[in-house]
Simulated scan of single mutants.
Amino acid sequence: MEEWKKVASQLDKDHAKEYKKARADIKKKSSDTIKLQKKVKKGKDEVRGQLDSALQDVNVRYAVLEETEKRAVCRALIEERGRYCSFVTMLKPVL
C-alpha cells in the first residue's frame, strides 16, 4: 500500500509540473498575442504577420497542453489497472 501511495503521489507531482509549465507558456504567448492585436488595431499592418504567427503558436501550445493531459490520464489509468490486477492476483488464492 505504501508503494502505491508513493507512485500515485509521484504521478500527481509530475502531472502538476507539466501542467504548470504548459499553462505558463500559454499565458506568456497569449499576452504577447494581445499586445500584437492592439498594435494591429492601431493600424500597424506590418505586425499582422507576427500576429498570425503568435496566434498559431498559441493554438499549438493548447494542443500540447491537451496532449499532456491525455498522457497524464492514460498513465493514471494504467497505474489503476495495474493495482486492480495485483489485487485480483492476491485475492485468487483466498477464493
Rank of each mutant, 00 (worst) to 15 (best):
residue 47 V to W: 01
residue 66 E to Q: 14
residue 44 K to I: 03
residue 65 L to S: 11
residue 67 E to W: 02
residue 52 D to W: 08
residue 73 V to N: 02
residue 52 D to C: 10
residue 70 K to W: 05
residue 67 E to N: 12
residue 48 R to P: 04
residue 50 Q to F: 03
residue 53 S to Q: 15
residue 60 V to R: 11
residue 39 K to M: 07
residue 51 L to S: 00
residue 39 K to I: 08
residue 53 S to K: 15
residue 72 A to G: 11
residue 51 L to W: 04
residue 65 L to D: 00
residue 43 G to Q: 04
residue 61 R to D: 06
residue 57 D to K: 12
residue 66 E to S: 13
residue 52 D to H: 13
residue 67 E to L: 12
residue 45 D to A: 13
residue 65 L to A: 00
residue 51 L to N: 14
residue 48 R to K: 14
residue 40 V to G: 05
residue 56 Q to M: 07
residue 59 N to E: 11
residue 63 A to T: 07
residue 63 A to S: 11
residue 53 S to F: 07
residue 68 T to S: 11
residue 61 R to V: 02
residue 54 A to H: 05
residue 48 R to L: 12
residue 64 V to E: 03
residue 48 R to Q: 14
residue 56 Q to C: 08
residue 46 E to Y: 08
residue 43 G to C: 05
residue 51 L to R: 03
residue 52 D to V: 13
residue 61 R to C: 01
residue 72 A to Y: 00
residue 44 K to D: 13
residue 63 A to G: 08
residue 52 D to A: 09
residue 73 V to Y: 10
residue 44 K to T: 07
residue 67 E to M: 01
residue 67 E to V: 05
residue 67 E to A: 15
residue 71 R to S: 11
residue 55 L to H: 07
residue 68 T to K: 12
residue 48 R to V: 15
residue 62 Y to W: 15
residue 53 S to V: 10
residue 44 K to S: 04
residue 57 D to Q: 13
residue 43 G to E: 02
residue 59 N to S: 14
residue 41 K to Q: 11
residue 61 R to G: 00
residue 54 A to C: 10
residue 41 K to R: 12
residue 70 K to T: 10
residue 61 R to M: 13
residue 58 V to R: 00
residue 61 R to S: 11
residue 64 V to D: 01
residue 70 K to Q: 15
residue 47 V to G: 01
residue 43 G to R: 04
residue 57 D to M: 07
residue 58 V to T: 08
residue 51 L to V: 05
residue 43 G to M: 06
residue 50 Q to K: 07
residue 67 E to F: 14
residue 50 Q to G: 14
residue 70 K to S: 13
residue 42 K to S: 13
residue 39 K to P: 01
residue 62 Y to C: 07
residue 55 L to D: 09
residue 39 K to H: 14
residue 69 E to G: 07
residue 55 L to C: 06
residue 60 V to L: 06
residue 53 S to T: 10
residue 48 R to C: 00
residue 64 V to Y: 00
residue 41 K to F: 08
residue 50 Q to T: 01
residue 42 K to H: 01
residue 72 A to I: 11
residue 45 D to H: 07
residue 70 K to E: 13
residue 59 N to M: 09
residue 62 Y to Q: 08
residue 55 L to E: 12
residue 46 E to M: 01
residue 44 K to W: 05
residue 40 V to C: 06
residue 66 E to M: 06
residue 68 T to G: 06
residue 47 V to P: 02
residue 72 A to S: 08
residue 40 V to Q: 04
residue 60 V to T: 10
residue 44 K to M: 12
residue 59 N to C: 10
